[in-house]
Computed example of a mutant assay.
Amino acid sequence: MIEDELSIRPGGPADAPAVAALHAESWRTAYAGIVPPAVLGDGLAAQRAELWELRLEADYGEPAAQPVLLLAESGDGDLLGFGYLVPQPDGRVLLDNLHVRPGRTGAGLGGALLGALRAETARSHPGAPLYLEVLADNHRAIAFYERAGGHRTDSRTTHFPGAGELPEYEYTWTQP
């Protein structure tokens, strides 16, 4: 069940530390057993912090190229999840991150956040397909994306820093 006080709002540079911390926490849970433990070790939090600071302070130029960060928060302002949309030159929109705080999954938060991200894509990029890339061994995420109506549209190999080449899938949602 979705929390009664759940709110979804746009994020910005001030949210980078909280997003980075949740991102690292989520990776440690989702990728355990998929990537080497060293990738998920002590340096992960600092690496994610640097990434989110750069992403959220960058100038992407025209508004159509601007990525969008959406945050899902509890009524008391705790960050429960986030998603990050990145418009692509091919006319699609990449859902570059979708994370729900470990221990809070299975209650509808991911579905609510994905719904908001799809609505934002439809609003800001009418007709653009939304897609994401997921490691092929991330079975829990794949099951969620398939339940949420995503269609596998590609499979390939990706280079995952510190883990080498790993198989991944692409999932796509089209707009009505």
Results as ranks from 00 to 15, higher is better:
T121F: 02
L95T: 03
R101G: 09
P167Y: 00
V19L: 06
V19F: 00
H139D: 06
A14P: 03
L94V: 00
E170D: 15
A38N: 05
A119W: 05
W173I: 00
Y31R: 07
R156I: 03
A107V: 07
G162M: 02
G103A: 10
Q175F: 10
V68L: 15
H99G: 02
A21N: 11
P89D: 10
Y84A: 03
A122P: 00
A30W: 00
A30D: 04
T29D: 14
V86L: 12
P89E: 10
L51N: 08
A64C: 10
Y145K: 08
G164M: 07
D42C: 11
D15K: 03
E50F: 09
H99I: 00
I34L: 11
G150D: 10
D76I: 04
R156D: 01
T174F: 05
A32W: 11
A32I: 01
Y169A: 05
G103R: 09
T157L: 12
A16F: 02
R140Q: 14
N97P: 08
H151W: 09
D15C: 07
E146I: 10
A119S: 13
A136L: 12
A112I: 04
A119R: 12
S26E: 05
A122V: 03
G91K: 10
P67Q: 06
A30Y: 04
T172R: 15
T158Q: 06
H151F: 09
P13A: 15
Y171E: 02
I2Y: 04
N138Q: 12
I2A: 11
V39L: 06
A141H: 04
Q66H: 07
A20I: 02
Q47F: 10
R48A: 14
S155R: 13
